[in-house]
Design a protein around this nucleic acid. Structure first.
Lengths: 333, 333
DNA sequence: AACGTTGATTACAACGTTGTAGAAACCTGA
DNA sequence: TCAGGTTTCTACAACGTTGTAATCAACGTT
């Protein structure tokens, strides 16, 4: 049996509002009244109805984090940091796995948002700026690169410069035939485009030509896609001496394919990834990668959202860039 | 600006209830009226307020999945299956990462539950049956082993027999000094206890003695813990020729530690895990493991919850066992 | 003794939605 | 034309909570 304020009030012999005042920590309640009410609350195991409270107050104390896929470890790790940062604001975080499809993402940005949650931290894959422009209501912070100069606050890292740096590192190891894995032509592939641009820029910096045949596409960025792309590269006869994979799961797949082909990493082929997921610190060999500051990303996003909620609803959207660094390990030391 | 039924009603020149009827697909609405209302809805970009609807109807169409940690890939993979299975019931799933602490888990089972969601699929780590007994309100399905014969529906796998089978497989490979990694003495370690029991049973079946020194504890079940435990085993001078790790991330850590110690897998030491996460299909070497049928687990849990919600609230709790199989790969072929 | 001040409590309305019950409009067939 | 039935629509109340404003008691001050 669920109890209501009314039940507690009757049991304590006070008005409904007094119980509400006790529940909400209102100052002017006599100690003995407070005690009576608190006892009644305990006896009935009363807990407030969040729907009703939300209807009345317009706030639930719950925010959502919407990500495409939780089994891409980057998002899982990011989720942990968001949960931690949000806890400092007294928020509960619910995570919405969208799957990355446009329809589901639209639903995430709307459906869930309809007053069940106060705000949304959203990492979209398929949604365009136009899609998002239609969603006035819900305070939102965007993560990632998809929607540049969209209508909402935005936290990102400098993908181009990060990709350029890690590619330059491969060049610095003396590699000359550097492949890239993870290119995407679809509009969803904003990160892919930026990372490819950084890769190309680094090659140009080094006076190395851009060879179309060294660039392997990958529809999704899972391990299997990385392994398949690596195999395709090897089969095609181009002989890379290094590979820059656009995320770490691709790179782990590539490591596996190289292993199966009997090639040594890093002696024959150096491998670098992007994301710095935990797997890469234990893989064989361990993985060199770009390490975005996930904790900072999460904190910036949560703080932006807090700002939006507390104060300046109408303020112009802000774009913040979180730092990154290179984490150099065995696969490209 | 957020609009309400009232705004739509005024614009379409009908009553509030008629708009509500259109929104809810009520049959007896004249086509032209319906069209007028739908146009008004579109023009105002109206979307219903879920809090209000929930307050009125007692249902939100949202369920939650509460898990200890998303960056343990097992839970991330499970989450994907739960999201898929729930979609067939028209439910949205929000994921609550509890962190595994008793206070946070209690909050997950209550706080979120307070009418924002219709039901909960809960994988507790720290909560006892007594804790859960106090939570009458929310329909709940439990996953995992922690609370046996608790007050709620329960989906699990047969941990003892699974551990026994995979250990027996190691025995079948001719291994005689089989270590175990992941033992826990705390009350939270229910899975650990069951898997250890299965391990011991398999040793007994084979006439092998149970050697305390071959059993390594691990506080958490992350890669780092597995690597540390493996190093401790090697340092202690016991020379295992096989290791059964109580989950796959432990096993991946162990693989790494063995690699660093210059030992070959499986030639010198065979390694087996538990969970069948995607990493294990791409690690070097690939990982032999127990593969619980995650899809089935998710589906059973969702269906149990659906039953609970639709019909027999008061029915006695049910316990269902999902199947598992062995996935044999390079690390213990 | 009358007064204002402060503290403690309460009645009422409202948040946006939908179920109930009933009114209004529309048909059908005599 | 009208009775009788069916379809379409609406008024009202209620879900559980909290903000507002009002009431009441207790107090110290003139």
């Amino acid at each position: 049996m669920r109890h209501r304020l009314k039940d507690v009030a009757e049991r304590a012999g006070v008005s409904v509002k007094t119980v509400s005042n006790v529940v909400n920590g209102y100052q002017h309640v006599r100690p003995d009244t407070r005690a009576r009410v608190e006892q009644a609350i305990a006896e009935l195991n009363y807990r407030p109805n969040l729907s009703a409270r939300s209807l009345r107050k317009g706030r639930t104390g719950v925010i959502a984090l919407a990500v495409p896929e939780l089994d891409i470890p980057y998002f899982a790790e990011l989720a942990r940091h968001v949960v931690t940062a949000a806890a400092e604001h007294g928020w509960t975080v619910l995570i919405d796995q969208t799957g990355g499809g446009p329809e589901q993402e639209r639903k995430a940005a709307r459906g869930i948002g309809d007053h069940l949650i106060d705000g949304l931290i959203f990492s979209p894959l398929a949604l365009t700026a136009a899609d998002l422009a239609g969603l006035d209501g819900l305070p939102m912070v965007l993560l990632g690169e998809r929607v540049d100069h969209g209508p909402a606050d935005h936290v990102m890292i400098d993908n181009v410069s990060a990709a350029r740096q890690i590619t330059a590192h491969l060049v610095g190891l003396g590699r000359r035939r550097i492949a890239a894995i993870g290119a995407q032509r679809t509009p969803e592939g904003a990160s892919a485009r930026l990372r490819l641009a950084g890769y190309a820029a680094a090659l140009a910096d080094a006076g190395l030509g851009y060879d179309e045949r060294l660039v392997a596409p990958a529809a999704a960025w899972h391990r299997a896609d990385g392994a398949a792309a690596m195999r395709a590269l090897l089969d095609s006869g181009v002989r890379p001496d290094a590979v820059f994979c656009f995320n770490d799961t691709l790179a782990l797949g590539a490591l596996r394919a190289l292993h199966e082909a009997g090639l040594r990493v890093p002696e024959d082929v150096a491998v670098a990834g992007f994301d710095d997921i935990e797997d890469g610190r234990f893989s064989i060999p361990t993985l060199s990668t770009v390490a975005p500051d996930k904790e900072r990303i999460a904190r910036l996003a949560v703080d932006l959202l807090a700002d939006r909620l507390d104060a300046d609803r109408g303020a112009p959207p802000r774009e913040l860039v979180a730092p990154h660094r290179l984490a150099l390990r065995e696969s490209a030391p």
